[in-house]
């Protein structure tokens, strides 16, 4: 008797949960129609290096358009491209490299919105006495670089090829933030990261600029996606990023204008 009631309760709970799941999706997709007033949520998939600046931009955008909510998914650009291709409900994609933008099929024409330059990052006080790129070839210095598979590693590779230096890294990190962490913890004497990363770790990390950085400037493209659940919201957000207010936030984080 007791067992039967318990089972019935369980079945009822399961039915409720299923109903709850079913109700969600049509509500989310119905906001995609071409109404002039913006509403609903905008899902922005953005490169990890944009975390600080885009979070700020999202807040400003929500203030300018009451009733709209911006959701961010920050991750490595290649991971994001794969998620979008596997059907993740993205409205906007901001990539740290044109290559990863190219991997996404269902997109409208991308626009380059910022550029990022490499910089040498050293722990505060520069304990390894790093002066320039040539120190990256010194076996006695602890060096971290990004793996060539990720954008910062590809850019670093280009720089070293351009100046004819063979670096002697102790580690090839999986993304630029991991390389930065190794510097801020003092585990390495130097790493090659972006100017924006050096700025984000102010106090723990010092930056050393080098002239050859101009040989591998990274361009960031942004695009709305053709399968965007919220097409109007997507367009409005991209317009906001490209506006003067948007540019101001991005330059404050260390990005260069294209």
């Amino acid at each position: 008797m007791f067992r039967r009631t318990a089972l019935a309760a369980l079945a009822a709970a399961a039915a409720l949960t299923l109903a709850g799941c079913g109700n969600d999706s049509p509500a989310a997709s119905s906001s995609g129609s071409s109404t002039t007033a913006l509403s609903g949520t905008v899902n922005v998939f953005a490169a990890a290096s944009l975390t600080g600046s885009f979070t700020q931009l999202g807040k400003d955008f929500e203030k300018a358009h009451p009733g709209v909510k911006v959701n961010f998914n920050f991750a490595g650009s290649s991971a994001l491209a794969q998620q979008i291709n596997q059907g993740a409900p993205a409205d906007v994609f901001a990539s740290a490299a044109p290559k990863n933008m190219d991997q996404v099929a269902d997109k409208n024409t991308p626009t380059t919105f910022v550029k990022n330059t490499l910089e040498i990052a050293v722990p505060t006080g520069n304990p390894g006495k790093i002066t320039g790129l040539k120190d990256f070839a010194d076996k006695n210095k602890k060096i971290a670089l990004c793996a060539v598979q990720v954008p910062c590693g590809a850019a670093a590779d280009k720089v070293f090829k351009a100046v004819g230096i063979t670096p002697q890294p102790d580690s090839l990190e999986q993304d630029v933030k991991a390389a930065l962490t190794k510097v801020s913890l003092g585990e390495v004497d130097a790493a090659l990261v972006y100017k924006t990363d050096v700025l984000s770790a102010k106090g723990k990390v010092e930056g050393i600029e080098f002239p050859e950085a101009s040989t591998a400037v990274n361009e960031y493209p942004i695009a709305t996606l053709t399968k965007a659940p919220n097409a109007d919201g997507a367009k409005a957000f991209v317009d906001y990023v490209l506006s003067d207010q948007g540019k101001a936030v991005l330059t404050a984080s260390g990005f260069d204008s294209p």
Binding site: G76, S78, A147, V150, D170, S171, L172, Q174, K182
Partner: peptide
Amino acid sequence: GNLPGRTTTMPLAVYLALET
């Protein structure tokens, strides 16, 4: 860290291969 031959184990190699 990750350096082939010294610290790159299979899971690390898988992760980086996934990037490209």
